[in-house]
């Protein structure tokens, strides 16, 4: 068993085109570190010094991880993590 991570089109350059990859860890932070070890550069697109990047949405199963503790959210085998870039903009 592992944790399935669904990757958006814009980040598939890091996963060799794969729509979903697998990783492991006890927390989202550890999972992202494990993914970065397999797909170098991915972490930097998801996380900055302040935590999860503001315009990247990460969901654990059906919840936005921001409501589950962000990077410290606990994850376990069988979970599905979905990454979606926020759709945003403005007039300035």
């Amino acid at each position: 068993m592992a944790i399935e991570v669904r990757i958006p089109t814009i980040l598939r350059t890091f996963t060799g085109g794969a729509k979903s990859v697998e990783g492991s860890g006890d927390t989202l932070d550890a999972l992202i570190a494990d993914l970065d070890a397999q797909h170098a550069g991915l972490r930097d697109r998801l996380v900055d010094d302040a935590g999860l990047r503001r315009f990247i949405n990460v969901y654990l199963n059906d919840e936005d991880v921001r409501f589950l503790g962000g990077l410290s959210a606990p994850v376990k085998d069988g979970d599905t993590v979905t990454v979606l870039p926020a759709v945003a903009g403005g007039m300035r």
Binding site: T82, A88, G90, M91
Partner: peptide
């Protein structure tokens, strides 16, 4: 009036 962002749960 100056910014938009899709609601994250609706987007999922």
């Amino acid at each position: 009036p100056t910014f938009y962002r899709f609601d994250s749960m609706e987007q999922l």
